[in-house]
Design a protein around this nucleic acid. Structure first.
Lengths: 214, 214
DNA sequence: CCTACCGATCGGTAGG
DNA sequence: CCTACCGATCGGTAGG
């Protein structure tokens, strides 16, 4: 046998997570029973309990893996070459590319974190905060004169709002006339042009003026 | 007695809806039992069943009233005086003002429509489509040269994305430094400036040219 | 005689 | 890794 016991175990868990993400997205976490999951997996409830100690462990593993992937993408793009604006553009495109094939996991992340107990919920929320922070940094670096402590979070959530709920209307792989890549282009155009329209910070101008007179 | 039987009945139902919206927002529809609702209302389950024939009827009444309010707002703003751009600006502000004090109902609308059976779900979805359509019309009227059949839905959902998930991060009434009205200003600035950056439609330009040469 | 409820419990099913 | 179950709780309804 080529595959070891451990790797097979992991493969089984991945299949369970795939099915669970679909079920949680369709009926939510409390609306999905372990019997639902067993049936969707074509197996028994007892078999599920062999791979995971409980329903919550399935949700936690699912969300931990997914948020880990989002952090990896955001971290990778933050270290990419090019100008800050080019990096922000790449970040938008990279996230929408990920969202295109992670719809069910994304829905579970947005709707079901609240059903984890605090000890499991906290690391997931921390990961989400980390992703938001990486976006905030990317926006601030691209538009240093437009972003301040007051509008920083709002601008970040405004950009997230544009891309984070595509699953509600945009289907993957050419269901409609507009692809995820097309939409990324549109988000980039509207957001980045929109940022240029914001008033420049007074202190940013002063800092520049001070620097230029010394 | 000043209050009639009917109006008292209606008052009771409104109080139930208020509590139910809070519960559904916090724990989702399937995660909320009739016992939970009864306890939160400080009453008995039997009393709940006196006012509503079932749990689903509570969710339906809640969502029907809320979507009705959203349609009323969008319809009112569509008929307001001023330029198309001023109307779009007013529409953004009016929706964010509504969202500020409808957070729990809004969460229930976004997460729990799927738990209604098809006969009850369809009118709610139709109402949502109506709201989207009114926004699409407002955007198209404000920027006739930037909107076409391909980007119309995407631009509408992009604007909805900016405002529709404020409940995830923006708290009502000055919890933070940024108010809902401030955020509406920011959305207006970024979106409307962003729209100006989109390429003008070829046929729109041609139509204008044709008109000017005749 | 109806409405507006009550305490108690129905038949089934949840996670484990 | 299945069958046979558990304590508890689900949405909904009985009699009075």
């Amino acid at each position: 046998m080529a595959r070891t016991r451990a790797s097979d175990h992991d493969l089984q868990r991945e299949e369970i997570l795939e099915v669970a993400a679909r079920a949680f997205a369709a009926r939510s976490y409390p609306g999905t029973s372990m019997n639902d999951l067993a049936q969707a997996c074509g197996t028994s409830k007892a078999r599920l309990y062999h791979y995971y100690p409980g329903k919550d462990a399935i949700l936690f593993d699912l969300l931990e893996r997914y948020t880990g992937r989002l952090i990896a993408i955001a971290t990778r793009e933050a270290a990419a070459p090019g100008t800050p604006q080019a990096r922000l553009r790449q970040l938008i495109h990279a996230f929408l590319a990920e969202y295109e094939h992670s719809q069910t996991r994304h829905i579970a992340l947005l709707n079901d974190v609240k059903f984890l107990d605090p000890a499991q919920r906290e690391p997931i929320l921390a990961a989400q905060r980390r992703v938001v922070e990486l976006f905030a940094k990317a926006i601030g670096a691209a538009y240093p004169q437009r972003v301040d402590d007051i509008n920083r979070t709002a601008l970040t959530m405004l950009l997230f709002g544009m891309i984070n709920w595509t699953f509600t209307w945009l289907k993957p792989d050419g269901g409609g006339r507009l692809s995820y890549a097309d939409f990324a282009q549109l988000v980039e155009a509207v957001f980045m042009r929109g940022m240029q329209g914001l008033p420049a910070r007074a202190d940013a101008e002063v800092a520049g003026a001070v620097r230029s007179t010394h």
